[in-house]
Every structure is written in C-alpha cells, then in structure tokens.
C-alpha cells in the first residue's frame, strides 16, 4: 500500500538522531577510516607505485584545489543549503581574474580581487537563498550561469595566460617537501574546522540546518547564517580558482567544470547529511581522501574512465542511502 512509505517519510525528520546502537555508531564514525585503510592496503599490494612519497604528493596536490571547495561546500550542506552549483563559475572567476588582472593591478591585488569577486558571487546566491527564499539549486545554477557569462564576455571567450612566472613558482614551491598549495589547503581546512565546530557562527550553521524553525525561534539570525554558507563557499572556490590559475598559468572559462560534483561527492561520502544539521570538515575531508585514493588506485590500475565514473556514482548512491537509512532508523525504547 502506498500509504506505508509516506508514513515513514513523515516520521523521518528527527530519527537519525534518535537511535544509535554501538555497532551503528562505530560504523558511522569509523566506517570511512576502515574504507580508507582498505584502499591503502589494496593499493600497496596492487601497485608498486602507489605507496610512495611521490604518489602521495601527487594525490595531495590534486586534492588541494577541490579540497578547498570541499571546506566551503561542507558549510552549505550542513546549513541545509543542499549544494552550491555556482562553483564552476566562481572557480573560473578566481582563475581568470587572478591572471587577467595581474598586468593591471599587480599579482597580489589581482589574487585578492579574484577571491573577493568570487565571494561576491556567493553573496548573491546567499541573498537569493537566505532572504528571498529561492531554492539553492536554482539560485546557484542561475547565479553561476550569469557569472560565467559575464566572465566569458569579459575575456572574449578565450584562454587567459599568466604574465608573471614568479607567481607560478611561488604556488609550486615546497616547504619540507610539501607543495605550498597543499599547505594552503590544510590551513583552510583547519580554519574551516574550527569555524564550524568551535565558533558561534558554526553552531548557528548546524542549528539552522538541524531545525530551521527552532533556530529562528532561538534568536539565531537564520537568513544571514544560510546566506553566509554560500559566501564562504564563494570565497573558497575563488581561492581555489586563483590557485588553479596560478598553477596552470592559463585559464579558460570552463576551467572549474566538474569541481562542484567532486566537492559534493566528497562531502556526501564523508557522511555529512544532505539534509543539513549534521557534519564536520574532517568528515568531509575524510570523504575526499577516500575518493581521491580510490581514483588514484583506479588510475594506477588502468581502470578505464567510464568505469571510474561508475564506481564514484555507486559510491555517492551508497553514501546517500546510508544517510537516509541512518535517519530512518527509529528504535530504541521510546
């Protein structure tokens, strides 16, 4: 009968947080660590290249750019903002401006301006979502399309090249063998983690995603908090794009394509709830590490690209199903 599933849906809002047998807790906390370990072990056995410092530095470097976006995207999911689909546009904005403005205002102001403008795009999305009440998917898709259009028009739809090789050298430089770009990612992750878990803004973000009405009734400025998550993602994507531009020393308008889904995949695989109210930056980054390692192993093993896509798609489906299952699990004595 159709009314059975409907009854279940109606009761699901709070139930993720109602139960939690010890085994379930362990799985939800440690499941990802176990999965990462499994990939590490399999990778080491399967490929002689996998467990080498060189390979790990490669993985970390390719992780860093999307990782910065993941930090922002975590805020969006936790606040109950579903997803920010304007990321490709804000990354392009960061990459193109950081290069195109170099001859005009110098590399450092260009870098800052690129990030600021990406943050402004985030603010536009945020205002539409938080204050006007437009669905985040629609709002970010709309803002992203407009911004990308403007950026394309501004550079005439062509590739922009870097003019200052020093900046590329700086981004590619290493400290104790770790690329600067990875260090920047780590710094962003640490700041993001403390902002979400220790600051009042972070607590507001979790509360707003957990129960919007209750947070509003508790004098939390819910609209601003919701908008803020998109500003944070805009700034992160802008930084990510600027670093990408400086690394490549060239940028096309479509340079950011695909990053939104990589970021969402990582956050969701990390166990951050798609419904909001639950999640942390370390969880999202664990999700990212897992996805990146898995991809790396598949690449080293010569798995064809479509199969890789299939595997990642399957992974998202499993993660989302687990999220829903955790929510559904009523039980315990009532």
């Amino acid at each position: 009968m159709t009314d059975v599933p409907i009854q279940m849906q109606q009761g699901t809002a709070n139930e993720r947080f109602r139960s939690g047998g010890p085994l379930f807790d362990l799985l939800s906390r440690g499941g990802l660590a176990i999965a990462i370990l499994a990939v590490l072990i399999y990778g080491s056995l399967a490929s002689p290249v996998f467990f080498t410092a060189g390979n790990f530095v490669n993985v970390l470097t390719s992780m860093a750019i999307v990782g910065i976006v993941v930090v922002g995207m975590t805020f969006v999911l936790v606040v109950g903002g579903l997803a920010d689909l304007s990321v490709p546009a804000t990354i392009a904005c960061g990459a193109i401006l950081s290069l195109a403005l170099q001859p005009v205002i110098g590399p450092v102001p260009a870098f800052a301006a690129a990030i600021a403008l990406a943050g402004f795009c985030g603010l536009m999305s945020g205002l539409l979502i938080g204050y006007v009440g437009i669905n985040p998917i629609v709002a970010t898709l709309g803002v992203g399309t407009i911004v990308l259009g403007i950026v394309q028009a501004a550079v005439g739809g062509v590739i922009v090249y870097g003019t200052n090789p020093d900046t590329a050298a700086l981004v590619k430089s290493r400290l104790f063998g770790i690329p600067a770009i990875v260090l920047i990612f780590m710094a962003v992750a640490v700041v993001g983690h403390f902002a979400l878990s220790r600051s009042y803004w972070g607590r507001w973000t979790i509360a707003t995603g957990g129960n919007y009405a209750a947070a509003e009734a508790s004098a939390v400025p819910v609209r601003a908090v919701k908008a803020g998550a998109f500003v944070i993602t805009g700034l992160c994507a802008g930084l990510s794009g600027a670093l990408l531009g400086l690394t490549l020393q060239s940028a096309r308008p479509l340079v950011g394509t695909g990053y939104e889904f990589s970021a969402i995949t990582a956050v969701v695989v990390g166990g951050v709830s798609i419904m909001g109210g639950f999640g942390s930056v370390p969880r999202a980054i664990a999700g990212l590490v897992f996805v990146q390692l898995l991809t790396n192993v598949m690449v080293l093993q010569g798995v064809r690209t479509p199969v890789q896509g299939f595997a990642l798609g399957l992974l998202i489906a499993i993660a989302v199903a687990l999220d829903v299952a955790l929510r559904r699990r009523a039980g315990g004595a009532l």
């Binding site: 809002a13 009042y200 979790i206 957990g210 129960n211 209750a214 508790s218 004098a219 109210g277």
Partner: peptide, 20 residues
Amino acid sequence: KDDGIVPSLSVRENISLPVL
C-alpha cells in the same frame, strides 16, 4: 519538535543557542 529543539544537537548545545 518543530520550533523547540534542534534534534541533532546535544542538550548543552540546545540550551545555549540563544545566548551563544
């Protein structure tokens, strides 16, 4: 359930929400 509690937060986090 609708306006009172944020279910995913602890008792502590719920209590301090308005004075955070």
